[in-house]
Design a protein around this nucleic acid. Sequence first.
DNA 1: CACAACTACTTGACATAACAAAGTAGATGT
DNA 2: ACATCTACTTTGTTATGTCAAGTAGTTGTG
Lengths: 118, 118
Amino acid sequence: MDESQLLKGILEGCILSIIAKGETYGYEILSQLEEDGFEGLGEGTLYPVLTRLDKKGYILCRKAKSPLGPIRKYYSITENGKENLEKFKEVYKKMTQKADKILFCNDLNEEKGGDGIC
Amino acid sequence: MDESQLLKGILEGCILSIIAKGETYGYEILSQLEEDGFEGLGEGTLYPVLTRLDKKGYILCRKAKSPLGPIRKYYSITENGKENLEKFKEVYKKMTQKADKILFCNDLNEEKGGDGIC
DNA sequence: CACAACTACTTGACATAACAAAGTAGATGT
DNA sequence: ACATCTACTTTGTTATGTCAAGTAGTTGTG
């Protein structure tokens, strides 16, 4: 059961969502993700996502000095990125609703979040 | 926004869950998934998953004639598979809870399912 | 001043899984 | 004979997360 496969696609949306809440930089995103329960994510996982989001035009990049280390790259979301984030949320919501139904609506009255999905 | 990436990992769990509900075969699983909202899944997507689940020992395979076509391969879940399915559900639940929090708990009181995630 | 420790980003090689497209083949009906 | 539906296989492509290693600026300790 490879957890990393489940992350695919989700991670990019989560990172875009974090940037949407305010300008931030890689290292901070990493600690934010850690705080949110996504532990053990390496830098080699995060930075390629940022590059990708930038290439797609979903975020803007601005370089600025750090008060305690090498140069930071600050990212902020673009209009294009905001639109994409909303689309992503819709797709994510639909996808998980479908999966929830198959996974948690068996013969028995199993439940996922406490609300009645079934 | 590539939907197929979001499917990764989820699909395997869903298919295992469908098999857990009773012995079935590929073509039937495909129509079941379609019924559950996973439309447009090709055979080239489904069958490799079944092979994988079989290799991992999560399902058993039995060949039998079809009343209306070529031979079918009937699959049923193993004890090992049942255990794995439960583990998968846990991992899936945790993962989506984390993602839900990041995606739907912004400054505004957005909501996902109607229950208070935030 | 040398060195460790923390911050911060980069790069390259790799594994996994979904997907498209094409193929093989049995059964049925016209 | 031919189309159609059922049913499974195979091959190559692509996207994305992951590991490992590297580069580099800043601060504090001995």
